[in-house]
Amino acid sequence: MARALIKVPPSARRGEVIEIRALIAHPMETGYRLDATGRPLPRDILRRFSCRYNGELVVGAELHPAVAANPYFAFSAIATESGTLTFTWEGDNGFAQTETVLLAVT
């Protein structure tokens, strides 16, 4: 399991726009670099990221090697009801990780 950091306010008022930040530890090896002996390093990147709020999409992303190591995303969501924010990352070599954060809406 890669280390993931997610920042979501613990509570929000109904209708409020909340800021979400998500970062995951991942080398995002591009596949274009060479190792010390001149052989190409195989590609190992995250291909997809998504954030869902009670199952409905907030933001989805498709990533290319030009996304920096330890991919970071900041975006916003509308707080409509208390529930769960689900963050998923998928990538090469079968990488898959899911994190959930609870959000209380008053």
Binding site: R52, V59, G60, E62, P65, A66, P71, Y72
Partner: peptide
Amino acid sequence: NPERGVAQFAFGPRAGRASVSTHIRL
């Protein structure tokens, strides 16, 4: 860069503002 694409973001029904930030390589 070696590939033209960097990242592509889809905004779902729960998205707040139409804004997204990330870190890229150049």
